[in-house]
């Protein structure tokens, strides 16, 4: 397995409780090892196993929650 780390910028993030909610939802996606949404900078930091989960899957979930992804970058 390979752990992939991604930082993405979200749009429409208006309340800290929503940040907590996205964190919980993304954390529960199978294959996601770690997720954190930072309210003040509107960033999603996620670590996932790319054999189990995919970025597309995570992005789709976040988008469906109502938060668009404006940019993403792999961190190493």
């Amino acid at each position: 397995m390979a752990a992939v780390k991604v930082t993405a910028r979200l749009e429409n993030l208006s309340c800290p409780s929503c940040a907590d909610m996205i964190t919980s939802v993304v954390s529960k996606i199978k294959g996601v090892e770690e997720a954190e949404v930072r309210y003040t900078t509107s960033k999603l930091l996620v670590t996932y196993d790319d054999e189990v989960a995919s970025w597309e899957e995570i992005e789709e979930k976040v988008t469906k929650l109502g938060y668009g992804v404006t940019s993403k970058k792999r961190r190493d």
Binding site: C18, M21, V25, K28, K61, L65
Partner: peptide, 19 residues
């Protein structure tokens, strides 16, 4: 509609959201 959708996805992940 969107609010309810968000609420539903969150609920399935066992999160009680504002939505």
């Amino acid at each position: 509609y969107r609010i309810a959708q968000t609420a539903w996805i969150a609920l399935r992940a066992k999160v009680v959201s504002i939505q």
